[in-house]
Write a protein that binds this DNA or RNA. Structure first.
Lengths: 141, 141
DNA sequence: AGATCACTTGCAACAGTGTTGCACAATAGC
DNA sequence: GCTATTGTGCAACACTGTTGCAAGTGATCT
């Protein structure tokens, strides 16, 4: 496991440091988009705020994670599809559950082409759907 | 014109104050989503930051304006469709031009139904398309 | 027009978010 | 192990957004 993480860093020519490894581990473990604050909390102050900001920024630049916007602000989630510095999957579909509050990526749905008025040229599309996720939708058993 | 604005406030049982009237005037004049900072600047410090925050919050609650999220943060735009405190148009399509930087609402396009995996229940959809707007797309004449 | 009362505003203070510069520390490659 | 390069922690700062409170203003009634 830790080997996989180290490898991810190596592939993107990033040095293997404990902060990077742990941020990556947390984002892998939680299957949801996390904010800087949530990550900081999960790391229990073992790293400086600034270091975490820079780590996230680096990861976004390298295409390891991507930004997710919801009403509460900016979050970050792993890019599961093959993104790289040069080739980045530009259409993101995110789902925010209004019940449990988790925001996650929906991988296997594709955003249909949106008809735009004359003259508009679309380059990148990001879609946030709010509603109830399967876990919260299921009646208690 | 000012009469229309006053009327908008009255309809939503809000007191007619110069701050509210001017914020409304700016959002009506600019055909784009504006951030708190941009509105504050447009008002040339004639009102306190806090007052503007509260004005925007009130307008959102009354359904006069709605929030728009783009990569740079939160913006606000007029609700052109009939929104009210109780009935609110929940599907928003926004376009951010990466050339001129303006974010605006696209009124006449409808977001198609997005196929979601089993178990997800969609309540509200917001879509941000980034690209080139008609004004920037047109070759200089 | 003036009094009244609820609603608004401005100010002070604060918490959270994100950035930069710089000195020191750790890593990868030899 | 040594060294160059890359990361980290700290301090400081700017910006965003919120709250409590005292003072001011608008709408309503007489």
């Amino acid at each position: 496991m830790a080997e996989t993480l180290k490898n991810t860093l190596k592939v993107h020519s990033l040095r293997n440091t404990s902060c990077r490894e742990e941020v990556l581990a947390i984002l892998t473990r939680e299957n949801a988009a996390l904010s800087h604050g949530e990550i900081e909390k999960a790391l229990e102050n073992r790293f400086d705020r600034v270091t975490i900001y820079r780590t996230l920024k680096t990861f976004v630049e390298k295409g390891i994670i991507h930004k997710v916007l919801d009403e509460e602000g900016l979050r970050y989630a792993l890019c599961k599809e093959q993104c790289s510095e040069h080739r980045h999957q530009h259409d993101h579909l995110h789902f925010k559950c209004t019940s449990c509050g988790l925001t996650s990526c929906i991988e296997n749905s594709h955003i249909p082409a949106i008809p735009l008025p004359e003259g508009y040229e679309a380059l990148e599309t990001s879609l946030l759907i709010q509603g109830i996720c399967p876990a919260c939708n299921r009646p208690a058993q």
